[in-house]
Design a protein around this nucleic acid. Structure first.
Lengths: 179, 179
DNA sequence: AACCACATGTAAGCAGTTACATGATTTT
DNA sequence: AAAATCATGTAACTGCTTACATGTGGTT
């Protein structure tokens, strides 16, 4: 799964600009895929050259022009090649987890700060996912609801466990260093 | 967090070869960090040149020689620079989740297969984590136990939710297409 | 006979990031 | 006056992957 595959997937739903695509990613695929403009724009240009997508320049007043891309037949074929390929194993780079593993090399205060920081982040993400789940504007198909539900379950578990860990830490852990 | 930082972290615990480091990663950091030999060996060579680590060649009989690396003072400083830098946001590339989102473009059979496949994978990973948690040979510090506990909680939630989803799918979902 | 574990390494390539450049409009 | 939103793009770089090369000894 690379940028191209995900871009084709969203263009299958509706024609969009690179700018739109990035915001679509951020809204609908948090914790699934990240892409910066530096990836999206060059990828779109390459895809257009290869005939996977076609550009339509939309003139706007007071705003820069938009390049609206729509998927071609060749693009649809490329998407189906992806969707029928074997699922790639997930890859995670979870710095917070690494910090935990290396926790013995920092102070208890530092560790607690990290825990609280991560909890804050997880909670924020969870709120986003839930609001998306309840939003009737995004007319999700059942599959998208499934993905959302799966994501929420995992996120919720992370929040709960972190809360427990922080609780224990504040009630027992800190004392060990304090005395 | 890049390869170098994690390598320094494990060398802080014990001197190791590149081969050992990879296996250490796989055992202790599943779902946190992945690195292939193609990353590890060149990184180790670069780090040696920069004076972060030092090599000791251990001759072995019947086996190839080993390059055992140990961390230097400069290496320890580099590790502390990492551990005191702000935590990087986690990055995930979760193909399975993407497939779910794009699920409407495939058959119900395909979707169910994906769900079962992912459940199998998650369960396998969970078993690994649990066996590590119970293994007294790896004398973990409290922080490592915390990391493990956090990882297990998330993994367990994924397994449970997927099982529910598959259950519902087999009892209701399939009928819609079958009749 | 084939394959896996042990052990290290190189070369080519790729996907993606960061930082920069441009520039109007709207909000704080 | 400053910052954010809208909108696209390039150039330099980096971190990593894939595939290959090499070779012994033990297992199936």
């Amino acid at each position: 799964m690379k940028g191209q595959d995900v871009i084709l997937g969203v263009l299958l739903e509706a024609p969009m600009s690179g700018y739109d695509i990035k915001h679509y990613f951020e809204k609908h695929f948090p914790d699934m895929f990240v892409a910066s403009f530096g990836t999206i724009y060059p990828t779109l240009n390459r895809m257009e050259k290869e005939g996977l997508i076609e550009k339509e320049i939309v003139l706007q007043e007071g705003k820069p022009n938009k390049n609206i891309y729509h998927i071609t037949e060749i693009g649809k074929e490329a998407f189906h090649a992806y969707i029928q390929s074997p699922i790639e194993p997930k890859t995670i780079k979870y710095d917070f987890m690494m910090r935990l593993v290396f926790g013995r090399y920092v102070s208890q205060q530092q560790l607690l700060e990290w825990l609280k920081q991560e909890l804050h982040q997880l909670k924020e993400d969870l709120v986003k996912l839930r609001s998306q789940d309840e939003d009737p504007c995004d007319c999700y198909c059942d599959c998208q609801k499934l993905a959302l539900r799966f994501g929420i379950a995992i996120q919720q578990a992370g929040v709960t466990e972190l809360e427990n860990i922080i609780d224990e830490f504040e009630n027992f852990g800190q004392k060990e260093t304090a005395f």
